[in-house]
Design a protein around this nucleic acid. Structure first.
Lengths: 233, 233
DNA sequence: CGATCGGTTCGCTCGCAACGGAAGCGATCG
DNA sequence: CGATCGCTTCCGTTGCGAGCGAACCGATCG
C-alpha cells in the first residue's frame, strides 16, 4: 500500500514539530553528542519533559543514544537525518522575510552534521574542484591522483576513508549559500583535520564554528581561500 | 539570533506532522495540482477540515494556491519542498522494517515532484551519463555536445531549458534506490516528453506511473533501458 | 433569477500530549 | 556504606488543535 508513506512521514514530522524537540535536534545538528541534561537546558524545558522528548526522538529513529552507566549521550541517528534537517532549513530560509539568511557567523562557517558548511565549506569544496583535486559527481565523487597526494599532505588517507562503510563523498546542498558543499566520509575527514589542526574551534552555543588566526592563514596557504574575503562578501 | 531556526523548523515540521496533512503533501508530491475537494478525499477528512489544513500548509509556505473563480488548485510551493519530502521518505525507509521499500510499482517508476524517480529514473540518468551525453556535477551538471544533439532528437531543446529561470540540472537522491536521479529543469523536461509521447501515463491514485508497451519499446530503443529487466530486479 | 456547487467560517466536542513536581532507581564517588 | 548525581517514571493540570455538522458566501450555470 502506498498509504504507509504518509503515515510514517507524519510520524517523523510530528516528532520534530514541537519547539522543544526542534531545539534538541538543532543543537545536535552540529554533529556532536550531548547529555540529556544539556539538551534539556538547550530546549528550555525541565529534565522530565526532556526525557520524554528524547525517548520520542529515539523512537522515531531520529536520534541514537549511547548509554554508559548513568549517563546517556545522544546524537543524530544517521546522515539521512542531517539531510532532513538541512532540507527543512532550506524551506525555512526560502519562506523567510525578504533577506534574512541567518546569523552572519552561522553563514560564514558552521558544521553540518559532521562536515563543514557555510561560505567556508562551499569555498573549500569549489577550490578542490577547480584545482582538479576533486571531481564531484552526482553519484558520489572521486579524488584524483593529484588530489590524493594533496589530501595526504593535509593528513587525510583517501584510501582509508574510502574503505569505510560510509559513503565516501557526497554533495550536500548548503541552505544558506544555495550551492553544494562536500559531505560524506571525506567531508567529515576534512572537517576533523581542520579541528585537529586548530584551524577551527567549535562554539559551545551552537553549530557556528570560529576560524582561528592560524586557521585563516592555513586556509589561505593550503587552499587559497581567504576567510577575510568571505567575511566581507 | 540562532534561535530563530528551531522555531521555524518546528513550525514547518508541525505543519506536516499530522496524517491528514502528510497525505495531502504526498498526493501533491507527484507534481500535479489538485482541488481542495480532491485533497479532502485523499486525506480522508471532511471538506471543512481539509480547508483548515490547506490554509495552514499554505501559511507554512509548503503549498501554493491558484484561485480561479470558485475553484482553488493547490500545488507544492517550490522544489525545495519536494526535496524536503524526499528527505523525509529517506529517513522513513531507513527506519522501516528490515526490507520493505515501498510498493513495487512505486519503486519501478514514479514522479518526484516533476521529474522521474524510481528504478526507471535512476536507470535513465545513469545511461545518459554512461553514454557521455550528460555530466552530472555537484553544482549542477552539463549536457555535452553529443548530449544536446541526442536530447534534440528526443524533442528537448537544451538551450531553451537552460535559459529558464530554474536550475537547469540537478541530482536528486532517490529514496528507494539510494542512488541519484536527474532533477531540475532538464529532469522535468525529460519527464514531460515521456508523458507527451505516451511512454508513461499517470495513475489517478498516487505518484506511481505506468510504463506503456510503446514506452517499454521506446526506452529500450532510445536509451537502452529494459523496463522488463528493471521489473525483474 | 433561482439552483447548484466549491469553498470557507462558525460553534462545538473530544482527546492527546506538553509540562513541572515529586518520587524512584541505578551508578558513581567520597 | 551513605551521599550525590543523572535519568526516568508517575502523577495531575492545562491547553491546543483535529474533527464534524450546519450555516454562509460567491461564482457558475441552466
Amino acid at each position: 500500500m502506498t498509504r504507509s508513506s504518509p503515515a510514517s512521514m507524519a510520524e517523523i514530522a510530528a516528532a520534530i514539530g514541537v519547539p522543544a524537540r526542534a531545539a534538541i535536534l538543532t543543537a545536535l545538528f552540529g554533529g556532536g553528542t550531548m547529555m540529556a541534561k544539556e539538551l534539556a537546558a538547550e530546549a528550555g524545558v525541565a529534565a522530565p519533559t526532556a526525557s520524554l522528548h528524547l525517548a520520542r526522538l529515539v523512537d522515531a529513529g531520529l536520534l541514537a543514544v549511547d548509554r554508559r552507566g548513568r549517563i546517556a549521550r545522544f546524537r543524530l541517528a544517521s546522515p539521512a537525518v542531517a539531510q532532513l534537517l538541512e532540507a527543512m532549513l532550506a524551506v525555512a530560509t526560502e519562506r523567510a522575510p525578504p533577506s534574512w539568511r541567518g546569523d552572519p557567523a552561522l553563514r560564514l562557517a558552521r558544521t553540518c552534521y559532521d562536515h563543514l558548511a557555510g561560505q567556508l565549506g562551499v569555498a573549500l569544496t569549489e577550490t578542490l574542484q577547480a584545482s582538479g583535486n576533486l571531481v564531484l559527481g552526482a553519484d558520489g565523487g572521486e579524488v584524483t591522483a593529484s588530489g590524493a597526494a594533496f589530501l595526504a599532505g593535509f593528513g587525510i588517507d583517501s584510501n582509508q576513508v574510502a574503505s569505510g562503510r560510509r559513503r565516501f563523498c557526497r554533495a550536500c546542498m548548503d541552505w544558506s549559500e544555495r550551492r553544494p558543499h562536500l559531505a560524506g566520509g571525506l567531508g567529515a575527514a576534512l572537517a576533523e583535520r581542520c579541528f585537529a589542526r586548530g584551524w577551527l574551534t567549535r562554539r559551545p552555543d551552537g553549530r557556528a564554528v570560529t576560524v582561528t588566526p592560524v586557521g585563516a592563514e592555513g586556509f589561505a596557504a593550503t587552499f587559497g581561500v581567504s576567510v577575510a574575503a568571505l567575511r566581507a562578501a
